[in-house]
Design a protein around this nucleic acid. Sequence first.
DNA 1: TTACGCATGTAAGAGGTTACATGATTTT
DNA 2: AAAATCATGTAACCTCTTACATGCGTAA
Lengths: 188, 188
Amino acid sequence: MERTNRTKFAVLGILSMGPHSGYDVKKFCEEVLAYFWHESYGQIYPLLHTLESEGLIRKSRPTDTTKDRRVAYVVTAAGKKDLAAWLERPFSEQAPRNELLLKVFFSNLAGPNVAIRQIDDYRAAQKMLQKVLKEAQANIEKELDQNPDAIYWQLTVDLGLRLSNARLAWCREAIQKLQRAATRKSNS
Amino acid sequence: MERTNRTKFAVLGILSMGPHSGYDVKKFCEEVLAYFWHESYGQIYPLLHTLESEGLIRKSRPTDTTKDRRVAYVVTAAGKKDLAAWLERPFSEQAPRNELLLKVFFSNLAGPNVAIRQIDDYRAAQKMLQKVLKEAQANIEKELDQNPDAIYWQLTVDLGLRLSNARLAWCREAIQKLQRAATRKSNS
DNA sequence: TTACGCATGTAAGAGGTTACATGATTTT
DNA sequence: AAAATCATGTAACCTCTTACATGCGTAA
């Protein structure tokens, strides 16, 4: 099984939307893709050099432009071709590592109150995520008519919202169920 | 930020449920935890030796027992204490890497039909997952009265089902939306 | 001018997968 | 007897994070 370098296509994709420096790429991940993707500087900067040497990206602004220290890159024709080919290939799932569920699974060792606290933290995190996603949804909606990218962005946000709704509903019911179990236990 | 060795507590947790060999631990991950956790042999076997040398686990059967080649381990008192302390600590979220959504996000480069195919593959995978989870749900339900662990297992399966339901609903609507967009495009 | 944020980067090393090796036991 | 499966393990290698270094521009 070949190992796919996932960072490569995230970066190519971001650069295909306009010139970005390494710093910009990181920002884009944090501000736009955060709920389904992330990258670190240690991945981004070396990769930018590699991709440039492979001819998949190139510097967009001549280095002599005054004032701006940023080195922004754009994808070349070869890069665009590579990116398009990747879009066609089947996706691979991330190996799952849900630490909350791992704790819940073994929570009989600690009892319901510990589990309740963990799930409540999860609920709080999902609540915050949901707020962010709703704002993103509203912003994208405005662009739907003019921007042909927007429908795809909308889809990703929509899945994010559905998942966080599902998690919130689960949290509420799970906490109730555990509270009932806790009182039953203390009454017996 | 310290890096938490997540494998450690998965293994301690599994061993806390009874004697398991390295092979058993892997099996347990694949057959029981699969939808939210995974481990590879390359992680499991070396870790078992480490944990034994740290006194957190010990061999359960004396090596002289005939017939059975398996070396099964159980957690010691120290291991149980470590595990309990971990259950109380706040969980940390897995850094997100959803390759399907990454492809969808950039899918304007390839057009709706490519996206539709990808999402349909996702739908098929979720459908299969859902079937497995429903079986697990039925099995756990039978144990609920006798087994104090079962309520926690049920919670994890329940979240798995809710998430896969949300994903399936999204797939259906996303495909419809993209099909409409595809026909609009070809008619213009 | 000191301090802080911007921006680019690297080194060290943790974490993790894959592919292979080995031998025993069971099945065909 | 051959093939498949059980079971334990390791070596090589990749991926990725973290922490730090560096220097520039700008605000206090």
